[in-house]
Design a protein around this nucleic acid. Structure first.
Length: 562
RNA sequence: UGGGGCGUCGCCAAGUGGUAAGGCACCUGGUUUUGGUCCAGGCACUCCGAGGUUCGAAUCCUUGCGCCCCAGCCA
């Protein structure tokens, strides 16, 4: 399984440009991780795992580094969440760092750049800086402070650090080229003044480095060999190289990292941007960052997605440079593929309708043996399910006037009750509005665990004993949006695309009694319905709450749609 | 109108001059006490378009076209 990044690494190793591979996952602790981050996590940590195997004892590793250079947005709370998510995905960082660990070094390098004539303190206002920068088609013009002496620059920077100026009064800038075709190279800002406490460094600093300055330095200090980021940073690479090239001799970095960019993950029927996720959460359109409708790691965890499935999905989408949007069906495939092997089968009726088996002895109860696994899953284990005269079946499994190829229950027709008997519908009871409220059947005692002789019964449906069933709340989750891609329009327009069916709460669902002891986070396949997980937050013994992880593929439903 | 990228099946994605991998989705059929799984088969004479080079091109050249990113004291 190769991709252009692995090709580059292989090339570096073969040419002996590198003897090891050191990567890093560098989230900013200002929000929660989503599946797009999962792709990056799998790439960066996966690379370290793979190459450590090929190059044992080489020092190959992957760091988790919090890119905490903007104290106005970042928080320890987010760091905790991020660490939990990375670990849950199944990865362990070899070292944990903060960009803020290097603030002192970065400052020192800033002074060095000044002494080299490569940086200067600029005192233009916010608006002036923007104006002087020019545009994509027009060159910018030099700041009037561009030729300040080294002494003046040093003095100003030191006083900036001491806190002698207000926010925005001065900035430190790289002296590069105000007419560069690459906007990122037009004397980019290196430091800005922020009289704001930092969650790691407290009030030690009132000047903070910008991403384009902090990132290459952090990478170089940590000995990162391959600094992998997303496509939108392609323009920043030239600046990344500039920073390192102008500091590497002085700083004696342990590596000369190179930045490579890959396409970020996009998924249809959902939103991935921090801004939109935040809007959903703060606007109470979802219950929180871990709402199972969200593509956040926390949301997917609560939804019942497994780390293995998410990793397999990330591996399946590949790593390339073309902007792309992966079909949600591909993610769902991997969820089912994983759960098929892991989730024991049980019987649950979501939308019950009562069935009375008229010729079954009134007080009789049979304990039927039911395997947790289908014949094709090589696992052992079974439980007893009680069977008696009154049971519940799924409303969808009964039809008064069925289409020709419907092979569930309908008047005069026979179906198999999974693990139990074949029953034939003999009568229905309707309410005043003509709705079927009860179905009457007879059973064939000869069909217990055996096929009827002389006839074929095509359909098998699930059921649960009315007397023994336990009640539960079941939350049916579906795709967040009802449209493939959110409206491109500005503002909150995407909110209109929210799928009203993304969450459907069902109460009074009937579960087989063995589920009474199901533990939070435990997942099951409810036969013929889908995969469900006991909600980790709201489920309580005696008050069970299940989340639907994903439905089973349903070729019947699909054929009916046509 | 500047610069940086990208364009291969409905969606991802291999391919790097030798005659279009694979996965998802979809369609057929088989197995089946889950209309699940599994199994067998189908699904790009064509690689954004047009020229050209070559015995031979998705791969090289030329030239169009389309899409994404860059003008935060965000990352």
């Amino acid at each position: 399984m190769g991709d252009f990044i692995r090709d580059i690494i292989d090339g570096d190793l073969e040419a002996n440009r590198q003897q090891k591979v050191i990567t890093r996952f560098p989230p900013e602790p200002n929000g929660f991780l989503h599946i797009g981050h999962a792709k990056s996590i799998c790439l960066n940590f996966g690379l370290a795992l793979e190459y450590r195997e090929k190059l044992p004892d080489s020092g190959t590793r992957c760091h988790l580094r919090f890119d905490d250079t903007d104290p106005t947005k970042e928080d320890t709370l987010f760091e905790d969440g991020i660490q939990e998510d990375v670990r849950w995905l199944g990865f362990n960082w070899d070292d944990l760092y903060h960009a803020s660990d290097y603030f002192e070094k970065m400052y020192e390098y800033g002074e060095h750049l000044i002494t080299q004539g490569k940086a200067y303190v600029c005192s233009l206002t916010d608006a002036e800086i923007k104006e002087y920068r020019g545009s994509v088609t027009a060159a910018g013009k030099n700041s009037p402070h561009r030729e300040r002496s080294v002494e003046e620059n040093l003095d100003l920077l030191r006083r900036m650090r001491k806190g002698e100026f207000k926010d925005g009064e001065h900035v430190l800038r790289a002296k590069i080229d105000m007419s560069n075709a690459n906007m990122k190279m037009r004397d980019p800002l290196l430091y800005r003044i922020r009289h704001t406490a930092h969650h790691m460094t407290g009030d030690t600093w009132c000047i903070y480095p910008m991403y384009d300055y902090a990132h290459p330095i952090s990478d170089a200090i940590e000995g990162i060999t391959h600094s992998i980021c997303t496509l939108e940073f392609e323009n920043n690479r030239e600046l990344y190289d500039w920073v390192i090239d102008n500091l590497i001799e002085y700083a004696k970095f342990p590596s000369r990292p190179r930045q490579y960019e890959f396409a970020r993950l996009n998924l249809n029927y959902t939103v991935m941007s921090k801004r939109r996720l935040l809007e959903l959460v703060e606007g109470k359109h979802v219950s929180g960052w871990d709402d199972p409708r969200l593509p956040t790691i926390a949301g997917m965890r609560r939804r019942g997605y497994t780390p293995e499935a998410i990793r397999a999905f990330c591996a399946s989408v590949g790593v390339a440079k073309a902007n792309s949007t992966v079909d949600m069906a591909q993610l769902e495939f991997h969820i089912r593929d994983d759960l098929n092997q892991k989730a024991p089968r049980v019987l649950s009726v979501l939308k019950p309708i009562k069935v009375v088996i008229d010729n079954y002895p009134d007080a009789q109860v049979e304990e039927l043996d039911a395997s947790y696994w289908p014949h094709d899953i090589p696992k052992e284990g079974s439980r007893k399910v009680p069977f008696c005269k009154e049971i519940y079946i799924e409303q969808d499994d009964f039809m008064l006037e069925p289409p020709k190829d419907y092979y569930r229950l309908s008047p005069g027709k026979e179906v198999r009750l999974r693990y139990a008997y074949c029953i034939t519908c003999t009568d229905v009871i309707k309410d005043n509005d003509d709705n079927v409220v009860e179905v009457h059947c007879t059973y064939d005692p000869e069909t217990k665990g055996a096929n009827p002789v002389g006839r074929k019964v095509k359909g098998t449906i699930h059921w649960v004993s009315a007397k023994h069933a336990i009640d539960a709340e079941i939350r049916l989750y579906d795709r967040l949006l009802s449209e493939e891609s959110p409206p491109t329009g500005k503002e909150s327009e995407f909110l209109n695309a929210i799928n009203p069916q993304a969450l459907q709460v069902l109460t009074g669902c009937k579960l087989e009694p063995s589920l009474a002891v199901a533990k939070p986070g435990e997942s099951f396949q409810f036969e013929r319905q889908g995969y469900f997980v006991v909600d980790i937050k709201d489920s309580k013994p005696g008050n069970l709450v299940f989340n639907r992880i994903v439905t089973l593929k349903d070729s019947w439903a699909r054929s009916q749609k046509k």
